[in-house]
Design a protein around this nucleic acid. Sequence first.
DNA 1: CCTCAGCTGTTTTTT
DNA 2: ACAGCTGAGG
Length: 732
Amino acid sequence: MDVSDLLNSLNSAQREAVCVSPGHHALILAGAGSGKTRVLVHRIAWLIRTGAASPYGVLAVTFTNKAANEMRGRIEELLAMPASGMWVGTFHGIAHRLLRAHYQEAGLPQGFQILDSDDQYRLIRRVLRELDLDEKQWPPRQMQGFINRHKDRGERPDQIKVHQGDLFQDVALKVYRRYEEICRRRGAVDFAELLLRAYELFLSRREVLEHYQRRFSHILIDEFQDTNTIQYAWIKLLAGDRGELFAVGDDDQSIYGWRGAQIENIHQYQRDYANVELIRLEQNYRSTGNILNAANALIAKNADRLGKNLWTEYGEGELIKLYGAFNELEEARYVVEQIEGWIAEGHARSEVAILYRSNAQSRVLEEALLYRSIPYRIYGGMRFFERAEIKDALAYLRLSMNRDDDPSFERVVNTPPRGIGARTVDNIRELARDRGISLWRAAEELIASKGLTARAANAVDSFIQLVEQMAGDVQGSSDVDMSLNDEGGQMDLHEQIDHIVQLSNLIEHFKKEKGERGQARIENLEELVSAGRQFEFEEEEGIDELGAFLAHAALEAGERQAGEGEDGVQMMTLHSAKGLEFPLVFLVGLEEGLFPHQMSLDEPGRLEEERRLCYVGMTRARERLVISYAEVRRLYGQEKYTRPSRFVSEIPAEFIDEVRIRGQVSQPLYRVPEEEQSHEFSLGQRLFHAKFGEGTLLDFEGSGAQARVQVKFDRAGTKWLVLAYAKLERIG
DNA sequence: CCTCAGCTGTTTTTT
DNA sequence: ACAGCTGAGG
């Protein structure tokens, strides 16, 4: 079969990667902008076109749904046929699919539910309450972290090594145990559990494992540097002796160590398999030379790299602009001014990205853009299916399908408020626990046995009636699993959702919420109905349409809220920028303590991750890169004098064009020894005495004029006494 | 059930 | 600074 058309468009390293011969595993170190997805997609097409694999034998795993969708789309485009039969998905999506198909072997109920992080958090809080643990002393977040950390490492409670006398561990373990028990009883599975269960399924059911080992002759992994322990263990198991692995990643872009990613897996992989072909993709098709070389120089400061030097055929391009702003407002002002210049050159706003270390930084920038009427999109914040109103509606839906769904019961029993207070719910919970029945059943019993005050009983009964009515309407009166609409035909998913939203009175409830928030919630509920309409259900083993929709809601929480459609400047954290590229990139807030973040300063490993993050940010830029920092930043309500990020000085000066601060702000006067508390100096004919006030701010007094003097740090970290003209005030 | 004062935490985020 | 939550009181 002639595959030259597949290979023609590739450079030699890419071609080598695509054509790795049978019997070999591959590790493709794909630098930023080197055509990583391209290689992955061409590899799959090549495998299929040469007959090395059938679509049925290919498994491609990614981390995000976005990456998975993009990959599938590009494969289909390249092969000019649907990639059906091929498994392309996220680790979680694929684990979910396996567990659905083998729910019995995995010890799960058929319609097991997926808990998202919020569901998990709520459940953990419930466990804490049940175990009489004080949330102040045992923060649910930490318990959640503990549980997930261990699951990510494949550890069940019994496998955790207990340190003698570690109270936190003791308690956390107890919580983990109880949490697991409840999940098992409810048939609920959290994100980490999906992976762990899929792994254990393979371990305990040889026949299942062997089936998939036979099936998947080729396993391709995207963003390999981001895999955690359990993901890699699962891959190894699945590959077995014969499966061929094709791992693509970049150790320099590993920025998720804090959530369990093991960069180590890249090294381990080469140790685990004898015949791993290591191929480096070093030609960059994204950025101009100066940007790339600057990024190379920065990342070279990290120890422990597999090593790689990106190069480009593009010219040097522009120098990186560096701007030291007076404060964060002025920084934002500068950024906006630059954007206006860019737009004036005839570019689109969406070609511009502002990247920052933490979300809190977005506000000031947003205000500056707003002030100049520049449309923007912010990535981040709540996602569609994570929103409270959406989860409320889904809880009604769940409950009407399964009355014993306790978390859903708890969620909506008094939403909208119908007079069922905490007291009443406590009573219900207590009975449920004592008798080992669901909250629903307990509620029914309490009404029957007159275990509630008349008022409470009434309220609970109205809730029960409401859900029964929903269930009856949606499912039709018969026991047959058939939902009927007004015409007596089957109710579609979106009709069911719509019906439940209407009956629940959620819309009326949110109308009362003040501000635009209630309106937004109502719109989201409407959006949920259309999400139901658009949902494409593919017949699959072990799941019905509603179940598939609910799983979809958990696994693909939907787009991040962002100003849609319009051509706008893109704003996001450095983390969410990974994988993207923009002609013009602003990297703002390069200050010690902010970026690198304070929390990562004490550990060399974490500092290196910050440096990689900076590297990721820089390599997002195609044509123009602007780096900025503020000398004064208001953070957490306090003004802080900052020094420029070490990353700024790690970029060789030859790539940088330091933009002068125009006139108004600062001028170095004296170099100040670190330990000096006051300073005497002359300015013009006057002698001044400046002494340190609070922190590093100097109060400066002179006769006839009053000015302020500050301590600032230059790029090299040298401390200077600086006259802040901006603050100069003349008296008399 | 609602409101308001007081307290707390505040890196990054997918699934 | 400030959002989000809790607990007290109306």
